[in-house]
């Protein structure tokens, strides 16, 4: 059973335009998937569909089905789904609703009616997981952007969801904050087996972690494949090609102009080593 499955799912908000159009995707348990696509493609809406907010919260009209860990979202409730899917919205600031760090995490647990003794223990555990131990009593407003983002993540993780959905979680973070957030997500993915679905416009930052890319455009699923296949497809068909990381543009160009084929580049280091080898070979040939 896949962690997330959409079957011919279509959706329109309260106006006739289809925002998601006949989408069928299957996301395996424990995978790290990234949703890509230009602005207005329906990325946020897809996240909300997995969380059940579409259509439970937004109304509108839908067709087809969405399953999370086998639960048909439309036949469940948002509260029930909150136990399985943890969602981090783009505007993390607004998702923090209490005065202090520990209260924020406790709030999620109180909503579910967890006993007070257990709350104390779980708050401690989950703050440790996101690296906020020692900040328990700190005022939420005094945290840095990266820390706030971690706190949102902690408050979502507190309920032990099997799936994490994050909509552009790093759009307000600096490069360092971005890097450490993805490192954390990758740990949660690798060590705790949490399925991760994330919207990210900076492809280079997710390449080291992602095992699947989902490319959307105008509400349609263009391609759902490994990162390298989706990137070459984007370059070949010139779909959302401006988002291809510069190093990959170079790689794909070399591959097209020569007969040379590189293995996928997940990090800059991999690119550098492989390009270094090529340049050495060329130099030897020319000598």
């Amino acid at each position: 059973m896949p962690a997330i499955a959409l079957q011919n799912f279509s959706y329109a908000y309260n106006h006739p335009k289809k925002v998601l159009d006949n989408i069928t995707i299957s996301i395996e348990k424990g995978s790290f998937s990234v949703i890509l696509g230009p602005s207005g493609a329906g990325k946020t809406t897809l996240c909300l569909a997995v969380a059940g907010a579409v259509p439970h919260y937004f109304g509108g009209s839908s067709a087809g089905k969405v399953y999370v860990t086998g639960i048909h979202t439309q036949e469940s409730s948002m509260q029930q789904l909150a136990l399985t899917v943890g969602t981090v919205l783009q505007d993390y600031e607004t998702q923090l609703v209490t005065m202090t760090v520990e209260e924020e995490v406790a709030f999620s647990l109180e909503n579910l009616g967890i006993a007070p003794e257990e709350i104390t223990q779980r708050v401690e555990e989950v703050l440790a997981k996101v690296g906020l131990t020692g900040y328990e009593k700190q005022a939420v407003t005094d945290l840095s952007g990266g820390q706030k983002q971690r706190l949102v993540l902690a408050s979502v993780l507190a309920t032990n969801p099997k799936i994490l959905v994050l909509d552009e979680p790093t759009s307000a973070l600096d490069p360092e904050g971005t890097h450490s957030l993805y490192k954390l997500l990758s740990d949660l993915n690798q060590e705790h087996g949490i399925t991760i679905l994330v919207v990210e416009h900076d492809i280079a930052t997710v390449l080291p972690y992602a095992d699947q890319f989902i490319l959307l455009e105008n509400g349609q699923l263009i391609l759902n494949d490994t990162p390298e296949n989706v990137l070459s497809f984007m370059a070949k068909k010139q779909i959302f090609a401006e988002a291809i990381p510069p190093l990959w543009q170079l790689k794909l160009m070399i591959e097209e102009l020569t007969t040379r084929q590189f293995p996928p580049w997940h990090t800059e280091e991999e690119a550098i080593t492989q390009l270094g080898k090529v340049l050495e070979e060329e130099a030897r040939k020319n000598a």
Binding site: Y57, A82, D91, E103, A106, V156
Partner: peptide, 26 residues
């Protein structure tokens, strides 16, 4: 806009089912 996002995020965090709610503090 903020209050709208907040309302959505509260729902996503399972807020609003008072029957099952608990309070950490005595």
């Amino acid at each position: 806009t903020k209050s709208e996002t907040m309302a959505l995020s509260l729902e996503l965090r399972g807020f609003g089912s008072r029957k099952t709610r608990s309070f950490k503090n005595n």
